[in-house]
Measured scan of single mutants.
Amino acid sequence: SDEEKKVRDQAKRLGVNTEQLLKWARRQGDEDLVRIVERLLRS
């Protein structure tokens, strides 16, 4: 999905993997991002 591509691009920009991005999203309190990243991790 578009959202998932955006998440992957953001992880690349930050230089982190998906698990690290999830931690980062939780720290930001970004519920939408957390949900998308969790979906990516499960897929």
Rank of each mutant, 00 (worst) to 15 (best):
L21N: 00
Q10Y: 14
G29P: 02
D32P: 02
D32T: 11
K23L: 14
T18L: 15
K6F: 12
R26M: 09
L14S: 03
K6I: 10
G29R: 06
K12S: 06
R8M: 11
L14Y: 05
Q10D: 03
S43E: 10
V34F: 06
E3V: 13
R26P: 01
R26K: 11
D32E: 11
R8K: 05
K6A: 07
W24F: 02
V37T: 01
E38S: 04
K5Y: 06
L40I: 09
V7I: 10
D30M: 14
D9E: 11
W24H: 02
E38R: 04
V7A: 06
R35Y: 05
E4Q: 08
T18H: 12
Q28R: 07
K23H: 11
V16Q: 03
L22V: 02
E19P: 03
E31I: 12
L33V: 02
L40S: 01
R39C: 15
V16T: 03
R27H: 10
A25E: 00
R27D: 15
G15S: 08
D2L: 11
R42P: 01
V7H: 05
D30L: 15
R39H: 07
L40D: 00
E4I: 12
K5D: 06
R26H: 03
S43W: 13
G29K: 07
G15Q: 07
V37Q: 00
Q10E: 09
L14R: 03
L14W: 10
L21Q: 00
Q20I: 06
Q28W: 14
E3F: 12
K12P: 02
Q20S: 05
D2H: 11
N17S: 13
G29T: 07
N17Q: 04
V34M: 06
K6M: 12
L22T: 00
E19G: 06
G15V: 08
E31N: 09
D9R: 07
S1W: 11
V37R: 00
R26Y: 09
L33T: 01
Q10I: 15
Q10C: 15
R39F: 10
E4N: 08
G29D: 02
Q28D: 02
K23M: 13
S1R: 11
R39D: 03
E4M: 12
K6Q: 08
S1T: 10
Q10M: 15
R13L: 10
R8P: 05
K5T: 06
R8F: 12
E38L: 14
W24Q: 01
R27S: 15
D2F: 11
S43H: 11
V34K: 02
L40R: 01
G15K: 10
D9G: 07
W24G: 01
R42A: 08
V16P: 03
E19S: 08
L33S: 00
V34Y: 05
V16Y: 15
L33F: 05
Q20W: 14
L21S: 00
V7F: 09
Q10H: 09
E3P: 11
A11D: 03
L21K: 00
E38V: 08
R13C: 15
L22P: 03
N17R: 07
D2A: 09
L21W: 05
L33G: 00
I36M: 11
R35S: 04
D30S: 07
E31G: 05
E19C: 15
A25L: 14
D2M: 11
K6E: 05
R8N: 05
E19M: 12
I36E: 02
K23D: 15
L21E: 00
N17D: 08
Q28T: 12
N17P: 06
R39A: 10
V37F: 06
V7M: 06
E19D: 09
R27I: 13
K23Q: 13
R13H: 05
W24T: 02
R35C: 01
A11F: 11
V34A: 05
D2S: 09
E4F: 13
Q10T: 12
R13N: 03
L21P: 00
E38T: 08
Q28V: 10
L21V: 01
V7Q: 04
E4L: 12
S1I: 09
R8T: 05
S1K: 10
E3C: 15
V16N: 06
I36R: 05
A11V: 10
T18E: 07
R35E: 06
D32H: 11
L33I: 03
E31Q: 10
K12I: 08
L33H: 00
V16D: 02
V34H: 01
R8L: 13
E38Q: 07
I36T: 03
S1H: 09
S43I: 13
A11P: 04
D2Q: 10
D9C: 15
D30Q: 08
